[in-house]
Design a protein around this nucleic acid. Sequence first.
DNA 1: CGTTACACTTCACATTTGTGAAGAAATCGA
DNA 2: TCGATTTCTTCACAAATGTGAAGTGTAACG
Lengths: 205, 205
Amino acid sequence: MKNYKIIKTEKQISHLFQIFFDYVRHLVEIPESDQEHCKEIFEPVFVKKGTILESEGTIHKYHNFIVSGHMRNFHHDENGNEVTTDINSGPRFFTSYYHFINQSVSNENLHCITDCELLRISKKNVEKASHIGLTSQEYTEKVLHFYLQSSKQRIIDLTTLTGKERYIKLMKAHPAIVKNVPLIYIASYLGLNPGSLSRIRQELS
Amino acid sequence: MKNYKIIKTEKQISHLFQIFFDYVRHLVEIPESDQEHCKEIFEPVFVKKGTILESEGTIHKYHNFIVSGHMRNFHHDENGNEVTTDINSGPRFFTSYYHFINQSVSNENLHCITDCELLRISKKNVEKASHIGLTSQEYTEKVLHFYLQSSKQRIIDLTTLTGKERYIKLMKAHPAIVKNVPLIYIASYLGLNPGSLSRIRQELS
DNA sequence: CGTTACACTTCACATTTGTGAAGAAATCGA
DNA sequence: TCGATTTCTTCACAAATGTGAAGTGTAACG
């Protein structure tokens, strides 16, 4: 089964970078010359639904930017149960940050829930390109801040909201996730059993 | 009521820095010369139980290191209810990071639950001392990573453990917190009602 | 020393969520 | 297109947690 590197036209690839640059501009400036350089160090990848891009027990090779599609991050707990810790859609970065940056063995899996269009960069290229704003210390710190803020908000939601309230909030914030991602993953992400979430859905309809 | 700057001896202050340096060494090297400099830019503060060190609606002035004592971080939700987002004991840094670093108006309160011994540094001094390892980009990134990892673990605990399991885990990891911090704050931190946590305590005894 | 305020426990009852099994629906691959 | 597999729903019952009130400490402060 060939999940990777399906051949696409120049135009399609150009479109990926367009979305990428539009997204990144929110956080940092990227001069024209850097944009050209990005096209050399970021690799466009088209991945089939179901692919595990990076898996637990390995050192993750790439820093991934989701252009389109849905991905989740999961691991196994001490009883062997899958725990979905994160679900996200493009455009955005989606990586096991801590382990990627430190190149330590990750306990996390990056799973493409739907077909995904990605741009990814190897650790080597990240280091080579440290002069580019995008891979600079400053940008990294901004990204980490952003994740820290989202994590804090999620903790607040988990401690103060009921399951139904958390689901409603997710529906409003990310309707595409609720539409495209299987219920079991959403349930795990929200800290609910699939049965409980199904009941909540029914109550809401 | 005078909560601040109770006069202490040279020896007591020296002890604070000793604990501080011991702690920081885990993450970064600090040469002798930098240690001397630290003593100039960090201010020892002795604070009475109950003091709100930094409060919501203001720009936080200091980056705090708890030498001893217990502090919590809380805010008010849209209904005006207090939410305790974090509880910690020294030695460790305890600051509303995002808002402090960006010098934006914080929505968080830093509350001394017990008498606390602190070392704190103003934003100005942080910038002045950027050549010291301790206030460098590298150190900041390590600290952010550390917080991100703790937040992720807390999310996992909140989604996969019951209230009783979370309480037991806290007891094991931080017995001093369970002993010294009022139940209402611990309950809020664990995402439980005070009544529920009290029941859990009873079941465990 | 006594008053006051706050924190903690306890209770009965309501609500939410978990559990496991069974069947319906949707999806996948040949 | 047709089985095979997975996911989703539904149900009854169990367990966990929320709620509000009442009563009992316990610490703080004058």
